[in-house]
Design a protein around this nucleic acid. Structure first.
Lengths: 212, 212
DNA sequence: AAGTGTGAACTTTTTCACAGCT
DNA sequence: AGCTGTGAAAAAGTTCACACTT
């Protein structure tokens, strides 16, 4: 059944289901029906069941889903059942925030090193990690398997991307203000910025104002 | 032509086009063809032209698009041609980062007040703004038009949501770890967390490993 | 000659509705 | 009786391909 490729939107929703389930565990609601869970996730129940069918046959007919085991299945399916090694490109307030985030650490996303291109930052230590010169990345990364490269640098984000890809890093989170892309289909780049998501809201507000 | 409603994915892409155009302005490339711009935005040219057709007839046949005027049209269409007032719910490292972000400020997203439910934070000042008790929100917000409510609180994000909605705030950015939804179609809630976007990458990496 | 704007064809995603299990 | 899992139908989104403008 896993032949069909997972649509991007389904992936996004599966992650939301997981987040809501993690929250639900504390409320001792168990089992939960697709109807109930769907409502808490802002989707309809057919959608939720179809989405979950990509993961497997997880429910019990006539009963619903076990919160605990559904959460476990989703975590495993999403690759969140073990840890991932990350490096940071560019040290700045956002980078510092991520380095210090216990939430990310607890979810298995660990930073191993920091890189920067600006001389004045090389050698400084943040959250127990040294800042290395980006040009030295090959040496630093030689003995560790880096899974994810996070770019926070605002000056030359594309230089960090290039360096990361050259090291064979396939998964990139780009948090700079300029979206980055790669022709290479083996590489996955996620672009995010707060102004991007706030602009979605500003569009919504503009439409609201027009309809008055 | 504006009769048809804008698909969510089109909105997201329009914002990316805007971001790339802003970057492009510095490179003095002008005019630009849909082919060229599309490549820089990770989409195909038909998609880009179709997306832009929601905004209007912006190009010149046989020539392409003026970078400057396309940027301007997009900004206006997306509601980014003026300022928006925001309030923050919950003071913590992420909240502090957002308050201090000059990027957001420069793009017209301004924080006006901070709210929290925890006594020990009330009265403190961050980036020139006082922290008010959430229960006092009606008084504080009485004379200002709040456009966007940003929730960073990790303890009881739903309490902040409820308070914001009661004040008539229609646009919510929820950065807590638990996704929030509203039945009310007049309200737009954007849910985001770094672990959500990193989980997209962890899924990608898991699939990569399986195919080896 | 070059490149937009857009109906029409195609593809993907969502919703419906119900067979089938507990 | 209740609720899942899923084909089939409906809706939405993407790509094609070309008429048309500069």
């Amino acid at each position: 059944m896993k032949i069909k490729e997972l649509p991007e939107n389904t992936l996004q929703r599966l992650i939301i289901y997981l987040k809501v389930l993690e929250h639900l565990e504390k409320e001792k609601i168990d089992p939960i029906s697709s109807e109930d869970l769907a409502k808490r996730c802002g989707v309809n129940s057919a959608q939720l069941r179809k989405d979950l069918s990509f993961v497997g046959n997880l429910g019990t007919k006539g009963v619903g889903y076990s919160v605990k085991s559904l959460k476990y299945s989703l975590k495993k399916f999403l690759g969140r059942n073990h840890e991932w090694n990350m490096i940071l490109g560019g040290i700045n307030p956002l980078g510092k925030f991520l380095l210090e985030s216990s939430q990310l650490f607890n979810e298995g996303f660990n930073f191993l090193a920091i890189f920067d291109t600006r001389e004045e930052y090389i050698g400084k230590v943040y959250n127990g990690l040294s800042v290395y010169n980006l040009s030295q990345i090959s040496y630093v990364v030689k003995n560790i398997k880096v899974d994810i490269g996070v770019i926070t640098a605002e000056d030359v984000p594309e230089v960090y991307l290039e360096a990361f890809l050259k090291e064979g890093i396939r998964a990139i989170l780009n948090l700079s203000h300029v979206p980055l892309f790669s022709e290479n289909k083996e590489v996955k780049i996620e672009n995010f910025s707060f102004s991007l998501i706030l602009t979605k809201l500003s569009y919504f507000l503009k439409i609201c104002e027009e309809n008055k």
